[in-house]
Amino acid sequence: MGGYTGEELTAIFLMQGFSGLSLFCVFLLMALGLAIIFGQMGVINMAHGEFLTLGAYITYLVSYLASDTWPFLLDYYFPVAIALAFLGTFILGYLVERFLIRFLYNRPLDTLLATWGLGLILQQIFRSVFGPREKSVVLPDWLMGSFQASDMVDIPINGVMVVALTVVMTIGVFFLLYRSRWGIKVRATTQNRAMANAAGINTEKVDRLTFALGCGIAGVAGAAFTTIASTGPTTGSLYIVDTFLVVVFGGAASLLGTVASAFGIAQSQSILSFFLSGSMAKVITLMTVVGILMFRPQGLFASKVRR
């Protein structure tokens, strides 16, 4: 490869790999919510990016409040912000399901259009409330700085924090879906709605909570996002096409597939962008994904969900 020694290549892969890791976290955190909403419910939520943005703005508000009004709380605001971001997006998701999605379950393509419209409206609300310029949060001291792993490799703490959060969220979602009573209800509803109903599961309630939970996870993703980048009104929508591709590529209802495809897409994009321009790295990655999907439309890890 173009005149690099093996040692340099390793270093490049390590550094680009770590920067790819934060992209991976954004993808995965966003895709987790989508994998629940799209994989389990078959609903295309094009406004998912805006839920991430909302979570990010809530975090921004909390941090602003903390740094402006109660400076002594600055060190501790982040967990509160995560909780509030989850709560805010959860409630909005609940309302959206109740008043919009519920009527469109048998028309998946129409949910796509309606949620796109919702996304546009939310974007404009963000723009009116927070202004078109990007906002960044005040990071608490313990999130700043980096540790020196070796003399060539420098690992920022906020990056590690995001990775940790992603791991926790992924494991949490896994347990919720596959090891909890609620997860059983969700999967039962996915597999056979009529039978689930007959078995005494309130499928409407399950739908509502599933959608709200997916949105809540997007909110947490937003909170995590603020630690590595600044937030603008269209931040979330920048990732929505990629994230949908991640979910489809992984195999819609497969959690493991989602993790694998988020990792693959993020890493190849990041590593390729060292050798090529950033845009070409993205083009090649996405084209490869689309190409593979054409040969393997069910995604990397095929699920056994009925369609």
Binding site: P108, V241, F244, L245, F295
Partner: peptide
Amino acid sequence: KRRVGGVYFAIITQAIASIMTILIIG
């Protein structure tokens, strides 16, 4: 030919549109 349709087709065409834009701009 591989019976991809509906939502998947929509998402993949959207991705192709996105690729085209990035390619043209890049």
